[in-house]
Amino acid sequence: MQQEKPYSQACENNKPFILEKLTLIFHTPATILEVGTGTGQHAVHFAGHLPHLTWQPSDHPDNYQLCQPWLEDCRLGNILAPVALDVGEVDWPVPEIHGAFSANTAHIMAWEEVQAMFSGLGQRLPENGAFCLYGPFNYNGTYTSDSNRQFDQYLRARNARMGIRHIEDMEAMAGDNDLFLESDFEMPANNRLLVWRKR
């Protein structure tokens, strides 16, 4: 039943706006790895509206089955079974991929994990493959809004390894992994959708 599923209001709020951009980026048949699937609401929404994609959910080994109720309820044939993915591991248990997506992970992961995510995707994405990363980011060394400042303080109070990342640090780190920032879309609620492209 609906109330038994895990639920994220943020996913419900942002999914139509993210879908609008993903439709432009992932417009040909492809297998897309979602890093940090969480509740599964994004996976179901995107796979349902983009039937030409094969969607591969994944999440931390402690959390990867959280999405199962949503996946079982939707019964979409283009969503694969979720996999337990620790981005810090050398071997990722994922199929051959053509693109990747992740939402609201970079500020929750430790910086070393963000680096590991980009390293792993840099190794696995084909030439010209896209990685779409959604969330809040800082620019020119500062916050883009008071709400982001408060959110960052909240994150760091919970865990000092968390925090909103600086776009300049992200670009430098991505470059080390043969990825470059192709597009930077402004999104609602002081978020961005960053499109990283494999060289």
Rank of each mutant, 00 (worst) to 15 (best):
L66N: 15
E127F: 03
N78L: 04
F101R: 03
C132V: 04
G77H: 09
D91Q: 14
W70D: 07
P51Y: 00
L76S: 07
V94C: 06
A116T: 09
G48V: 10
T37A: 15
H52W: 11
T105V: 13
G40E: 02
V35I: 15
E112R: 14
T37E: 10
V90G: 08
L50V: 04
L33P: 01
V90L: 07
F101S: 09
R75K: 02
L33R: 14
H98L: 12
D59R: 14
W92T: 09
A130F: 06
A84D: 00
G122N: 09
F131Y: 06
G48D: 11
D73E: 03
E72W: 06
V114K: 08
V90P: 10
V87C: 01
C74D: 11
T39Q: 05
E34W: 06
I79R: 03
P69W: 10
A47C: 03
H98A: 10
A103V: 07
G40F: 07
A130C: 15
C74Q: 14
V35K: 00
Q123C: 02
D91A: 15
W70N: 04
A100R: 09
V44N: 00
T39L: 08
A47I: 11
T37H: 13
E127M: 08
I79K: 00
G38Q: 04
E89V: 07
N104G: 12
A116R: 04
Y64D: 09
F118V: 07
V90C: 10
P95D: 14
L50Y: 09
P93S: 12
F131R: 02
V35D: 02
L33C: 03
E113V: 05
H107A: 01
A116Q: 10
P69Q: 03
T37K: 13
Q41R: 02
C132M: 12
D73P: 01
C74P: 03
V90F: 05
D62Q: 00
A81E: 08
T39N: 12
P51F: 05
A106I: 04
G38I: 04
C132H: 06
M109G: 02
H60R: 06
V35T: 13
D62K: 03
F118Q: 13
W70H: 15
A81W: 06
P57T: 02
A106D: 10
M117L: 14
R75L: 10
H49L: 04
S102L: 13
Q56P: 11
I79G: 12
L121T: 07
F118S: 09
H42S: 11
M117W: 09
W55I: 12
M117A: 09
Q115T: 06
G120Q: 08
